[in-house]
Design a binder for these strands. Structure first.
Lengths: 264, 264
DNA sequence: CGATTCCTTGAGGCATCTCAAGGCAAGTGG
DNA sequence: CCACTTGCCTTGAGATGCCTCAAGGAATCG
């Protein structure tokens, strides 16, 4: 799909913010723990689907919170897996480093979503997670979670289901990468963001993207210039208005149709 | 990446064997259960990493076995999720149906590998699984497994780790689809098959592919003609010999280098 | 042995990539 | 407050890798 020359590898896209985040720990601030039961994200996050008494058990663990500045890493590829992380606020991107130093984005995470489950496979994180804006997370010790789940099938089920959801999510991304053109990819991406914004009480049709064109491109398997051109193309079709990172989905239905019709 | 016209949608690739497998259940034969502890696949499969007594507990469940003929479905997208399946012999492909009736291949499964974990997310299978040759599976009732895991953290851990492994596997596939060209994709694919063959005691450098060019193409996000041409190109470079489905990796190291150098 | 399926190969077209230039906004230092 | 830098985005022009369409050969099967 792409052309490679040594020259293009040298001029490869690097995400400058991640360079700034090398000493992530130093840049984070620990804050006081918060109980899940009073968290405004409890219906989106880990407690979702759990009975009241189970949520109270979660409260007992008193997850540590941490704030991150844009560009700072939460965990890095290869780090020992100890925690899974729930996004309290802000947006993150996950990605794996390629041999030449570039990073392939594998996911974006919004408030209430969990990160880090990939670390379970081999005991070390397979991806790095980086904050795209001011952000805060809850650090959930995995060992504690399994302990808590030991005598509790409901709890176990939640964890398994969360992981399965990751698998399904990635299935659809694979479909996207494997069989859609640029407009469809960007369309699917925007509609997905739209739904997630809506689920969080924000407008489904107007929002600010937190990630750069290069990051979107990496995620969708296209170059940043193509992302930019595709935004313009969709705008010309009257499907959306875009101004840098501000997006208004002018014709949600039309956009959906574009995506669904052109699955090929 | 692809071009779409109504005409191309009509002439889309269909996997003929799956059409033959619509009444999958009728085509399968139940066979007597087998204990895990004496299974020759126990080091690759579910019991891998479990202590002796835990394996014996698995034995107690006496998983039903089932044989499938090539092209016959094990489960279909949308089926209720009740079992996960371990491949005893043969090869399977998993895939999701696109709106236009084509199927996007998401995985190939070999002996000792598990299928069906994607069903956990929503209680129904997100993919269909189809045998590519004569095959046999163990049907593992998920409910029984969670029961067994309830008082047993080791067991739980195994399940979680298996799921996490799926996530990591798909990460690398995404990387492949998002940032590699045709030669690299096919190279990665072949090296992956090679490793899995080796792990099963077969030759790492010479094997029969069980899937068609179209299936490989769907999996790798390219057209069947491109798969064929890419095989020819790699052969011309002296990296492999290919004759229909028989492949000999003549220069494993060179192939690896091709893949690693050209990550871009 | 005809039908079917699968694979290979060629020719031409097109979607996306590459390379390049320029604009805008925010930050910085004088 | 302004000149300058820097990061990010947009757009154009040309190159190219993969797709589409098409034809033919080989293997399999009833």
């Amino acid at each position: 799909m792409n052309t490679t020359t040594p020259a293009s590898a040298v001029s490869a896209v690097h995400f400058s913010r991640s360079a700034a985040g090398e000493h992530a720990a130093a840049a984070t601030r620990a804050t006081v723990p918060t109980p899940c039961s009073t968290c405004h994200l409890k219906d989106l996050c880990l407690p979702c689907g759990l009975a009241g008494k189970d949520v109270q058990r979660l409260d007992g663990m008193m997850f540590a919170r941490r704030k991150l500045k844009p560009g700072h890493g939460l965990y890095r590829q290869g780090d020992k897996f100890q925690f899974i992380y729930a996004v309290r606020s802000g947006t993150f991107r996950s990605g794996l480093a390629l041999k030449d130093g570039r990073e392939q984005v594998t996911a974006f995470h919004m408030a209430g979503e969990l990160m880090g489950l990939d670390g379970l496979a081999h005991g070390t994180h397979a991806t790095s997670a980086t904050a795209l804006e001011d952000a805060e997370i809850c650090a959930i010790p995995y060992a504690g979670l399994t302990e808590l789940a030991a005598g509790n099938p409901d709890m176990q089920n939640i964890i398994s289901r969360l992981m399965s959801r990751e698998i399904v999510r990635e299935h659809s991304l694979m479909m996207l990468l494997g069989s859609m053109n640029a407009e469809e990819r960007l369309g699917v991406f925007l509609l997905n963001i739209s739904q997630r914004m809506k689920a969080r009480g924000y407008s489904a049709s107007e929002f600010h993207l937190r990630m750069s064109r290069a990051e979107i491109g990496s995620y969708l398997g296209m170059k940043l210039e193509t992302v930019s051109r595709t935004f313009s193309a969709l705008q010309q079709q009257g499907l959306l208005d875009v101004d840098k990172k501000h997006v208004r989905l002018a014709d949600l239905e039309g956009l959906t149709r574009t995506v669904e019709m052109r699955v090929h």
